[in-house]
Nucleic acid binder design. Structure first.
Length: 426
RNA sequence: GUGGCUGUAGCUCACCAGGUAGAGCACCGGAUUGUGACUCCGGAGGUAGCGGGUUCAAGACCCGUCAGCCACCCCA
């Protein structure tokens, strides 16, 4: 018999993990709703050209990381490696950017990379995209929104913000020329990857980790010097907003992003707790992308959060969530079970918010109580022969010192209401 | 794509010049018959990732393969 395991880089999120994921997703939903962002749900497969044109033909993602295949009509399709391209496509296709649009989405992304901690081939991102606002108050809002989310999740202290302004495409091409000119003089001192990038994607040389390359970069022209006055002023305004918001940041003039569509503001939230894959959130402005896809020129900005990394971070900080069972129903035998069934059913209607677990599969009282205890239930409801005969039910608190007591069926709802109030206020 | 490490019960791990596997936790049952947590007793559970090779004999050695981890790379 052949056994199967999940394919490389594809990870099962097990029931033990899902409560943490759900609490993270709930927090995100609430924060985003609070800022007036609306959810958009997008396809996982798009035309290959969509990604090639927006992310950039010579980026690593497009050159070697995409899951690309021909469908049955021999059109080239790609499993989305990121969310912005598809979101912008939808915005253009449905004309959503007539007025400012603030959108978010969540879901799996696919990149064919060597897996390691914090890096999978199928991973999940929360993407947030804002269309139609060109001023830095938009950038500031996105960053402030991030901080709110970090606070909600309890990871605020573990994340630091790096920010930079990479100018518009004219600024960057001027800078690129100067950088290439400078680096070409020191070509011999660069690492092999950086030499290769000299032709393909010179800006990415800036964040090379190679010591030799770093040394060369010490004397390299600086990107901020190539920005025009208006762009610099906008960036200063953004930094001022961040200061007003009391959001700590580090301006990193070497910060560049691996996707070509970014301009002006770029930022990353990073942590030291996750090893090599330290970026939990990255984003920036992409004012040209809507027009690139045939829409009217529309300024836009956004960011993406790597959810596995965020979960890893929460785990590194020992953040846990639990939602224990409230009521566990124990029955003596099949007759008692039949007796209890409609009563429990009614209770579920009465208290839809309660997690009520009916013991299934029979067994001794002893074993049923063991299960009740392990479930974390605060209260056991017991239907035995005596209760059945007298139309009563026994309630046994499983936590704390309260004694168990037997009450009439008719009193159960009011008793539980009171009991739950006490538990809530306690 | 490159380099290194790893892969034994559900989980964390151990053993062993190479002689067909153990512990803790978890799980199931019991300790006078309607009551959990602690304790005690008992039990179940592994063809040692998979395939091949060397050997009288391999989980232990060799090769391949799959997967995980770490770094590079890349990025979220």
């Amino acid at each position: 018999m052949t056994t199967y395991q999940a394919i490389r880089g594809m990870v099962d999120i097990l029931p033990e993990q899902t409560p943490l994921w759900q609490s993270m997703e709930t927090a995100a939903l609430e924060v985003l709703s609070g800022y007036g962002y609306a959810e958009i749900r997008l396809p996982i497969i798009e035309a290959t050209g969509l990604f090639a044109r927006s992310i950039g033909e010579v980026t690593d993602i497009v050159e070697k990381e995409m899951y690309t295949f021909d469908d049955r009509s021999e059109k080239s399709m790609t499993l989305r490696p990121e969310g912005t391209a598809g979101c912008v496509r939808a915005v253009v296709q449905h004309n959503l950017a007539i007025t400012p649009q603030k959108l978010w989405y969540i879901g799996p992304m696919f990149r064919y990379e060597r897996p390691q901690k914090g890096r999978q081939r199928q991973f999940h991102q929360l993407g947030v995209e804002a269309f139609g606002v060109a001023t830095p108050d938009q950038d500031a809002e996105l960053i402030a929104l991030c901080r709110q989310l970090w606070r909600r999740l309890g990871v605020d202290d573990a994340l630091t913000l790096e920010i930079n302004c990479i100018g518009d495409s004219a600024d960057r091409s001027k800078y690129r020329e100067a950088l290439v000119a400078y680096l070409s003089e020191h070509r011999e001192s660069l690492d092999a990857d950086s030499q290769r990038r000299l032709e393909s994607n010179p800006l990415r040389i800036l964040d090379s980790k190679d010591p030799g390359t770093q040394a060369v970069l010490e004397g390299a022209p600086s990107l901020p010097d190539y920005l025009d006055a208006a762009t610099r002023e906008e960036f200063e305004t953004l930094l001022q907003y961040l200061a007003e918001l009391d959001i700590a940041y580090t301006v990193n003039p070497r910060l560049v992003r691996g996707l070509d569509y970014y301009n002006k503001t770029v930022f990353e939230w990073t942590t030291t707790l996750l090893g090599a894959q330290s970026t939990v959130c990255g984003g920036g402005r992409y004012d040209g992308l809507v027009a690139l896809f045939g829409g009217k020129q529309t300024p836009a900005a956004g960011f993406a959060v790597g959810l596995e990394r965020l979960i890893l971070l929460m785990q590194a900080l020992d953040i846990t969530v639990s939602h224990p069972v409230d009521l566990y129903v124990i029955t003596a035998d099949t007759a008692a079970l039949a007796h209890a069934l409609p009563r429990i059913d009614a209770l579920r209607g009465e208290f839809p918010e309660l997690e009520i677990v009916q013991h299934l599969g029979g067994g001794s009282f002893k074993s049923q109580f063991k299960r009740a205890d392990k479930s974390g239930a605060s209260l056991a409801l017991i239907y035995g022969e005596a209760e059945l005969a007298a139309n009563t039910v026994t309630l046994k608190p499983l936590r704390g010192e309260n004694e168990q007591r037997t009450i009439a069926d008719a009193e159960l709802v009011s008793f539980l209401s009171e009991y739950l109030n006490e538990v809530d206020s306690a």
